[in-house]
Amino acid sequence: MIRLPDASGALRPYTPREAPPAPPGGPPPASRAVLAAAHVVADPFGNTTGQGPADLDWEATLAFRRHLWAHGLGVAEAMDTAQRGMGLDARAAAELVRRSAVEAKAVGGHLVCGAGTDQLTPPYGTPADVCAAYEQQLAHIEGHGATAVVMASRALAAVATEADHYREVYGRLLRQTAGPVILHWLGPMFDPALEGYWGSTDLDTATDTFLDIVTDRPDKVDGVKVSLLDADRERALRRRLPAGVRCYTGDDFHYPELIEGDAHGHSDALLGVFDPLAPLAAHATRLLDTGDRQGFRAVLDPTVTLARHLFEPPTRYYKTGVVLLAWLAGHQGAFAMAGGLHSARSLPHLARAYELADGLGLFPDPGRAEERMARLLAVHGVER
């Protein structure tokens, strides 16, 4: 038994559940492309202050990717879940891409990697300067044999003054990529600096510009990742995509219904919440492979409460809960994050994340998870 604090400061007893049999690993799901945006493991004895380059525990970071591949999921590397722009600097991101590409080749794992412009610092210059920064990161990713995810750029959002600047930059990039890429629309709830991306704060206008870019070169677009937390908007957008262009949901609130799909189609998945949910996500999607929609929803629907908790406002700090759960599950030896983001959520928030994850059976060793949570609580003055 453990005592957990709530938002009022009150403590209540909680008895962890016994561990259910973990869903086994297996091949990648066949009916949907399913990728988890993976977190990075900070070196707790290195720089976690937010000042200077991030220090990572490389072995633990790569071991977690092997865990995702073992369950049949693809890995989305160096994305916002890996703290791009929030503790992970551009040099460390480039090294992360290189190391993950080696691991992916060794195990035959599916890997996509985020290409951004975070090597630039303000003032960012012109749209052409931003495009050159993208080109540098795209060349690095494609040079290591991975598919690139063209991430939304803070720099481009800062210097673009009209929709045509987005059309010009993305058009130039798509003309020269070696293979099809994934275009990422990350909403301002994940990064306030991206407000007005695609040249407008009106989402209908922004959607039209986004689709113009995709339909101009559909042969160079494997898919689009939409992270707006708006299921109706995602469904409407995916119906307008050219044939053969995937819609990867980035909606960590509505993913079961979007992945299941409807009479007009479905979304594939590229989700930060699948970092902690990997075994359940893979198992559920393999049920969907067999046509068992009811079984798919029975596995994934109960996870949404945890997802909504992890991604509650300020949404961009969801990474703190993700890393907490990885520590509690035994995937890393310390609860520490680059940039000091392990302090970005309150103790009651973390306690609730532990309780919800335990209720889903996400901890292979519930006793270890309880002991680690108790130690974290003790640091904050909560005695057993």
Rank of each mutant, 00 (worst) to 15 (best):
E135A: 12
E142C: 13
A139P: 02
V97L: 06
Y124W: 13
Q119G: 04
G87L: 13
L174P: 00
T177E: 04
P180D: 03
Q137W: 09
A104H: 05
V150R: 14
A155H: 03
G114C: 11
M151L: 09
E162M: 14
E135H: 13
E103R: 07
R154S: 12
T126H: 01
P122H: 04
G116P: 01
A90I: 13
G145S: 11
V159R: 02
A115I: 06
T117S: 10
E135V: 05
H165T: 01
V169C: 08
Q136N: 11
A128K: 10
D118I: 11
D118L: 11
A157F: 09
D164A: 11
A155I: 01
V159G: 03
V112W: 12
A128V: 06
A104V: 02
K105Y: 04
V112L: 08
Q137F: 11
K105V: 12
G171R: 09
L138D: 02
E135T: 13
A101Y: 02
A104K: 05
R175I: 01
C131S: 04
W185S: 04
H140F: 14
P123D: 03
H165W: 09
P180W: 02
A115L: 06
G179M: 05
I141L: 06
P180G: 08
V169Y: 12
H110D: 06
D118S: 03
I182L: 14
G125F: 11
V130S: 12
V159N: 14
W185K: 04
V150L: 11
T126Q: 15
A90S: 14
D129A: 12
M86Y: 10
E95I: 00
V149G: 14
L96V: 04
A157V: 00
V107L: 07
A133C: 09
H140R: 12
L138I: 10
A93D: 15
Y134M: 14
I141W: 02
G143P: 04
V150N: 10
G109N: 01
L96C: 08
G87M: 13
T161I: 02
E162C: 10
S153G: 03
K105C: 08
V150W: 05
V159D: 08
L120V: 07
P123F: 14
L138Y: 02
V150I: 14
A155Y: 01
A128Y: 14
Q137N: 12
H184Y: 15
T177G: 01
A133H: 01
A160D: 00
V150M: 10
L96M: 12
A133V: 10
H144Q: 13
V159L: 01
V130E: 08
M86T: 10
E162F: 09
V102E: 13
D118E: 15
A132R: 10
A101K: 07
A178M: 00
E103T: 12
E142P: 13
E135W: 08
P122T: 03
A101R: 07
R172I: 00
E162V: 04
V112C: 07
R99A: 09
Y134T: 05
S153R: 15
A152C: 05
T147V: 06
R172Q: 06
E135C: 10
C131K: 09
A146I: 02
A133W: 09
T161E: 15
A92W: 15
G179T: 11
Q137S: 15
A152F: 14
C131Y: 07
P127Y: 11
G114L: 07
Y170K: 04
H184D: 07
M86H: 11
Q136L: 06
C113F: 02
D164C: 03
L120F: 01
A133F: 07
R175S: 08
L183V: 00
